[in-house]
């Protein structure tokens, strides 16, 4: 099924993997990074009345997750079209 454009298929799949890895790095940074492990470093940085780590743990990470999913969906759906894998 994918034999006719197997070179294209490999490029499509590695582009998807790159996009996933990039997104998951951001995903890790905002939650496990800013929200938990790096919190002590940013205790003096404030977002409104909350320190940066507390804000990321309770609000910032969730907002970032939404952006990540929509960014991924937009990029992948565009890639589907550009590379001829659209349904």
């Amino acid at each position: 099924m994918t034999d006719s454009h197997s070179g294209n298929a490999a490029a499509y799949w590695s582009a998807n993997l790159r996009l996933i890895i990039g997104s998951l790095i951001v995903w890790t940074l905002v939650s496990f990074g800013f929200g938990i492990l790096l919190r002590p470093l940013f205790m003096s940085v404030y977002i409104g009345g909350a320190d940066l780590g507390f804000w990321f743990a309770q609000q910032g990470s969730i907002l970032t997750f939404i952006v990540l999913i929509f960014f991924y969906a937009w990029r992948m759906n565009k890639l589907d079209k550009d590379m001829g894998f659209e349904e």
Partner: peptide
């Protein structure tokens, strides 16, 4: 307090995995 922020990040962060993986 702050420690239970895990529930907020955990129960939403899973959707990123679901959407991509």
């Amino acid at each position: 307090g702050y420690v239970n922020s895990s529930f907020l990040m955990g129960w939403t962060g899973g959707y990123v995995l679901l959407a991509m993986l």
